[in-house]
Write a protein that binds this DNA or RNA. Structure first.
Lengths: 204, 204
DNA sequence: TTCAATAAGTTGACATTGTCAAGTTAACAT
DNA sequence: ATGTTAACTTGACAATGTCAACTTATTGAA
């Protein structure tokens, strides 16, 4: 008796998953700050406090959504990592573009994943950190590879270099997402500039 | 009858300024999300709705605080611009460091100035935009100067270059402020790396 | 099969918040 | 002096997160 798609009798059957899915949709549609537990519960068709049997509090629910986001981003990164038939320069470029494209296409989710709501004041759950840290670590791994491939100075501290690189893509993404840069049609061009500015002296 | 520092009889006398000052302190102390109009009013010693005679709503108050922040940042930028006795390379480096130092020392204010609360959904007031745009524009002006001084490629589109540069400092600042990078002792080192990575091929 | 333990869901209640409406008080220009 | 208006007040409301106490269904052991 677990095949009816949406609402069931008393016990929902798969409320946790449904909450995450619907909450993600609501966030994508109307933004993070517009998400209220009560509206979410209403939408799903349960009472306001039902979610508390699956998530400790609102923060835990947000962490759950972010987790899914990190898994998504990890898959994208992993996929790029495996495209060994492309030149290093091309893969570096794609990394930058892919990262910002992900942020652009999932603006509200990105905001949640890397925003203060979750990270400030140690709000993040352990499960979230388990998803997120590999994603952070991936930046460093990639940087080391680019150094070995001669794209970036091999004598530099890989962690520091990756922090600058990540800062750049994160900053550009944020300026768009938060509404400071408003002309979305220029994203790709800005990415190209970023690529060239970092690789300028290793190109020829 | 306008010399008593804090609370007066019925008319406060200088409530608008006081609200901005106290609100700024509260934000600096406890973070943006902890600021409530009611607590603020209580702190200042007026009723909950008194602020509404000086600010249209909470958003307008936040914009007012941010305005002060932009004036502060504009002064720092202007000061750096005038240090013509330093080498271009040194001035570029100081610009990066000063920017991130400002963000670090005024974390919550910075969050407000460049955060989605204000810029998303066109929440910004006209007065705020009048303060903020010169600050944005300044980035481009500086970039053009660096190009002319040979620090950056003069053939590149100055706007795009400045967007990448600003993205970088903004991103690094945000990663620290939002609690993703947690080791504050490395800020300066990361800044140095940023400087070197952008100027690498123009250095020798 | 029965039945107790427990997981899942419900209503009631409360404090906090932003904000509106309607009233009050003081300042100020005529 | 007097009336207009700016500054401030209390009362009220809806939205929200979350706790406590209760109810209903599921499930695993007897």
């Amino acid at each position: 008796m677990k095949n009816t798609p949406e609402k069931l009798n008393y016990h929902h059957g798969d409320l946790r998953t449904t909450l995450l899915r619907v909450a993600s949709e609501m966030i994508k549609e109307h933004g993070i700050e517009a998400l209220s537990l009560r509206k979410l519960a209403a939408q799903v068709g349960v009472s306001r406090t039902a979610p508390y049997h699956h998530f400790k509090d609102k923060n835990a629910l947000l962490c759950g959504i972010a987790e899914n986001g990190f898994e998504k981003l990890n898959r994208i990164n992993q996929h790029g990592f495996e495209e060994t038939h492309l030149s290093p320069h091309e893969r570096f470029s794609r990394f930058i573009h892919n990262y910002i494209r992900f942020a652009s296409n999932n603006a509200e989710l990105y905001e949640l994943m890397f925003g203060r709501t979750i990270w400030k004041d140690k709000n993040s759950t352990q499960e979230l950190r388990d998803c997120a840290y590999p994603c952070f670590q991936f930046q460093v791994t990639m940087t080391q590879q680019w150094q070995q491939q001669g794209l970036l100075n091999v004598d530099d501290n890989a962690l520091r270099v990756s922090q600058v690189l990540w800062g750049t893509v994160h900053g550009i993404a944020k300026l768009f997402i938060d509404g400071i840069y408003t002309d979305n049609s220029k994203v790709e061009e800005i990415c190209d500039y970023a690529v060239n500015m970092f690789l300028a002296d290793n190109k020829q």
